[in-house]
Design a binder for these strands. Structure first.
Length: 395
RNA sequence: GGGUCAGUGGCCGAGUGGUCAAUGGCAUCAGACUGUAAAUCUGACGACGGAAGUCUACGGUGGUUCAAAUCCAUCCUGGCCCA
């Protein structure tokens, strides 16, 4: 993997660059669609490419449970299994340590999970995560970490960070002691943690840069903390990270978060929002988010977004999309996913273009002059998550 | 014509003397969703009101009762059975 920095913006710290991998070039800043189960839900590979998706995510924990590593080996890795010939980044399972926290126990370097599918016990460690990601054959491997929740006490964040740091070193040692399983090289990204505590974040960024990884991610954000904290941490960490390596803000975010993050020096982002929300009826436009299920779109014969050139917007109207959702037709979710992914990638492509043309600050201003930013619900999300866990626990 | 069962809020359908403006489901109207246990979840859903509350409601009418969606009489409507 080779990262090339092409442009930096001032006074905003945005950057444009390229990441060369064995499966092609990634032009940054870039939004990466999430394909947890070896599929970006509801979308075909062709549709992803039409949306200009350059790299997608897969997930260690989920793919390990299903289809299982025997299938993955026989298939020849994740690329071949899903027939995706562009870059893939795999998450390490660290996020599941957080999101499935009620099903796991951390003891030393071993995290014992109860499968959310059948309750069976599984043990994860940095080595196990690396081994699975070797089998998957992703272009970018993520270190195994603990994504801390919010709120999180300073003491816990500090303790967790020490463990995560140990795991990150173990991840590197393990991966670098072996050859890639398939015929391409695998880059390894570290993950900066430290919750919302600036000194911990700084320690983390410094510690990891000193060890040296191919790229650096910022994890543990967008988990319920206020927006200003999220933006602030992102900026501080970016300032601390080396310039000559890509920076990946994990799990972020909404369109406004993407722009804010790019402006603070982030190169890569991923989020389930465009696909998940697409299935639930939310449509992203340059004017803000709309819910296509709303009554007011029943007779609206304009495209989802007037300026969008995606398949959905070129061929269908809001009234039609509204109808498909009313009928709970699967095509509605597909068409809407096509649009949202197109839109999210487009945001980063436009930002990149602006950067290369030395007009990023103008682009930034124009975006926020127009885009209606949503109210911050981050505080309510922890409760929402709890409700869901309780509901699943009952079943 | 006789008998019998039934008529509940937009629909289906519980409730069978007070704790009932009335369980559920559907439909409707909104909201949420940030390294995916998510085609999911939450809320509203008779009228007026910010709320306390007030009013109108369980086919119609008339009763019994301190109190009726619930009991009685009668009428209307529908299903089934007999003629």
């Amino acid at each position: 993997m080779k990262f090339t920095l092409q442009k930096e913006s001032n006074p905003l710290s945005a950057r444009a660059g390229t990441i060369q991998t064995d499966h092609g070039v990634i032009e940054t800043p870039i939004f990466m669609p999430v394909g947890t189960h070896a599929t970006v839900k509801a979308l075909s590979n062709d549709e992803l490419k039409a949306a200009d998706a350059q790299i997608i995510l897969g997930n260690t924990y989920h793919l390990y449970l299903r289809p299982g590593m025997d299938v993955m080996k026989e298939a020849g890795g994740l690329h071949k299994f899903m027939n995706w010939d562009k870059p893939i980044l795999t998450d390490s399972g660290g996020f599941q340590v957080f999101s499935l926290s009620h099903l796991r126990k951390i003891e030393g370097d071993i995290t014992t999970f109860r499968s959310h599918l059948d309750g069976s016990l599984h043990q994860f460690s940095p080595e196990v995560s690396m081994e699975i990601q070797r089998t998957l054959g992703s272009d970018i491997v993520m270190v195994f970490d603990e994504c801390t929740p919010y709120p999180c006490t300073y003491e816990y964040a500090k303790k967790s960070l020490a463990v995560t740091h140990r795991w990150e070193k173990m991840s590197k040692d393990y991966l670098r002691s072996r050859e890639p399983m398939w015929d391409h090289t695998q880059a390894l990204f570290a993950i900066v943690q430290g919750s919302v505590y600036e000194d911990l974040r700084m320690d983390s960024a410094k510690y990891l840069s000193d060890i040296g990884y191919d790229g650096y991610a910022i994890g543990g954000l967008a988990v319920g903390e206020p927006k200003d904290k999220m933006y602030d941490m992102t900026q501080k960490v970016c300032e601390q990270l080396p310039k000559d390596a890509p920076r990946y803000l994990m799990g972020v975010g909404k369109p406004e978060d993407i722009i804010h993050s790019i402006a603070r020096g982030v190169d890569m982002m991923d989020c389930v929002l465009p696909t998940r929300n697409a299935r639930n009826g939310s449509v992203y436009t340059w004017d803000g988010k709309i819910n296509i299920k709303n009554q007011r779109f029943r007779n609206d014969f304009t495209p989802l977004d007037p300026e969008c050139d995606c398949y959905t917007c070129k061929n269908h109207t809001r009234a039609y999309m509204h109808h498909l959702y009313r009928q709970n037709e699967i095509l509605g979710m597909r068409l809407n996913s096509i649009h949202n992914i197109h839109f999210f990638v487009k945001i980063t492509r436009m930002a990149r273009k602006a950067l290369l043309e030395d007009r990023f600050p103008e682009f930034y201003k124009a975006f926020f002059d127009r885009y209606k930013v949503e109210e911050d619900h981050s505080a309510a999300n922890a409760i929402h998550r709890e409700n869901r866990i309780k509901k699943f626990a009952k079943k």
